[in-house]
C-alpha cells in the first residue's frame, strides 16, 4: 500500500512536469512547422506582436490557475479586465501620474476579487454564480458609467511597452516571465502557496491540518484580483485608444489557457508555468492561422479542440495511474 503510494508520487510529479514540456515542445513545433511554411511567421516583428499582445492573457491566467486549483472558477475576469483598463486609462488621461494609473487598478482588482472571495469563502456561495452575477454588474456598470466613450490622448509615458528590461525584453513580456516564475516559486515553496493545493485537493483534510479554508480562499481571490489588475494594465497600456467595452470572450481564453496548461478543474493540481505556456501557444496558434492561409474564424474551434484534447489526455493519464475518480 505504502509502496504504491510512494511510487505514485514521483511519477505524478514527472507527469506534472511533462504537461509543461509538452506545451513547450508544441510551441517549438508550431514555430518550426509554420516557420518553414511561411518564414514571415517567425520574423521578430511577428514574434514580438504575439508575445506583447498576449502577455496580459498569460498574467490573468496565472491568477485564474490559482482560483481553479483552489476548486473554484471565475467567469467575471474578462469584464473586470475591461473595467480596470478603462479605470487605468481614465486616470491617466485625467492627469494622474502614470505610476498611480498603473497601481490603482491593481488595488481595485484585488478588492473586487476579495469581495467575491468573501462571498464564496465565508458564505459558502458557489463561485460560478457569484462571478456570473459580478460579470453582469461589471459589464453593465462599465457601459452605463462611461456611455461607451473611447479613451484616447493617453499620455506618452503611460505606455509600458516602450520600456524594456535590459534593453531587450519589452516590459509586458518581462512582467509575464517574472510573475510566472514568482508565482510558481511561491505556490511550490511556501506554506501559503501550498495551502492552495491543499484546500483544492481536499478541503476537509486541509482543515484538519490547520489550514483555514475560508482564509485561504479569500487570499486566493485577492491575489487573483491583483494579477487581473496587472493584466488589465498590460492590456490598457498597449492600446492607443481604450474602448470602454468588455473584451468579448476574454474569460474563455483565460480559462482555456489555465486548463490547457494542466490545471485540473477538479482542483488540487496544476502549475502556473503551464498556464503561461498555454497562453503563448494559443496566441501563437491564432497568429499562425493567418500565415498558413486559414481563416482566423477557425481559432475558437481550435481552442475548443485544444481544451478537449487536454482534458482527455489528463483523464487517460489518471486512468493509467489508477487514480480515476
Amino acid at each position: 500500500m505504502s509502496a504504491t503510494l510512494t511510487a505514485a508520487a514521483p511519477r505524478r510529479l514527472r507527469f506534472a512536469v511533462s504537461q509543461e514540456w509538452l506545451l513547450a515542445i508544441a510551441i517549438l513545433l508550431l514555430f518550426v512547422g509554420v516557420g518553414l511554411y511561411n518564414p514571415r511567421f517567425v520574423a521578430s516583428r511577428n514574434l514580438q506582436s504575439i508575445l506583447l499582445g498576449n502577455a496580459y492573457v498569460a498574467v490573468a491566467a496565472i491568477g485564474m490557475s490559482m482560483v481553479i486549483i483552489s476548486g473554484n472558477i471565475d467567469i467575471s475576469v474578462g469584464s473586470l479586465i475591461g473595467v480596470l483598463a478603462s479605470v487605468s486609462g481614465g486616470l491617466a488621461v485625467a492627469g494622474v501620474p502614470s505610476v498611480l494609473a498603473w497601481l490603482i487598478p491593481v488595488a481595485i482588482g484585488s478588492a473586487v476579487m476579495a469581495a467575491q472571495g468573501a462571498l464564496v469563502a465565508y458564505l459558502g456561495l458557489p463561485s460560478i454564480v457569484v462571478t456570473l452575477g459580478m460579470l453582469s454588474i461589471l459589464k453593465g456598470g462599465l457601459i452605463s458609467v462611461t456611455n461607451g466613450v473611447w479613451i484616447s490622448n493617453l499620455p506618452d509615458n503611460y505606455h509600458l511597452a516602450q520600456w524594456s528590461l535590459f534593453g531587450v525584453v519589452p516590459m509586458p513580456v518581462a512582467f509575464m516571465v517574472v510573475l510566472t516564475i514568482a508565482a510558481a516559486w511561491w505556490m511550490r515553496n511556501t506554506a501559503l502557496g501550498r495551502s492552495i493545493y491543499a484546500v483544492g485537493g481536499n478541503a476537509e483534510a486541509a482543515r484538519l491540518c490547520g489550514i483555514g479554508r475560508e482564509r485561504t480562499l479569500m487570499m486566493v481571490f485577492a491575489v487573483h484580483g491583483a494579477f487581473v489588475g496587472i493584466a488589465a494594465v498590460l492590456f490598457a497600456t498597449q492600446l492607443s485608444v481604450i474602448q470602454s467595452t468588455v473584451p468579448s470572450n476574454l474569460e474563455l481564453t483565460i480559462i482555456t489557457a489555465s486548463v490547457v496548461g494542466g490545471v485540473s478543474i477538479l482542483g488540487g493540481t496544476g502549475t502556473v508555468v503551464g498556464a503561461t505556456l498555454a497562453a503563448v501557444l494559443i496566441a501563437a496558434i491564432g497568429s499562425s492561422l493567418i500565415f498558413v492561409n486559414l481563416s482566423p474564424f477557425w481559432l475558437r474551434a481550435v481552442q475548443g479542440i485544444l481544451i478537449l484534447v487536454t482534458v482527455l489526455a489528463d483523464i487517460y493519464r489518471r486512468r493509467r495511474r489508477g487514480l480515476a475518480r
Partner: peptide, 15 residues
C-alpha cells in the same frame, strides 16, 4: 466539458 464545447461549437459556427 461544456466550456470546451462552448468554444468548439461557437468556433464551428464562425468557421
Amino acid at each position: 466539458m461544456t466550456i470546451g464545447t462552448l468554444a468548439l461549437y461557437r468556433g464551428l459556427a464562425e468557421g
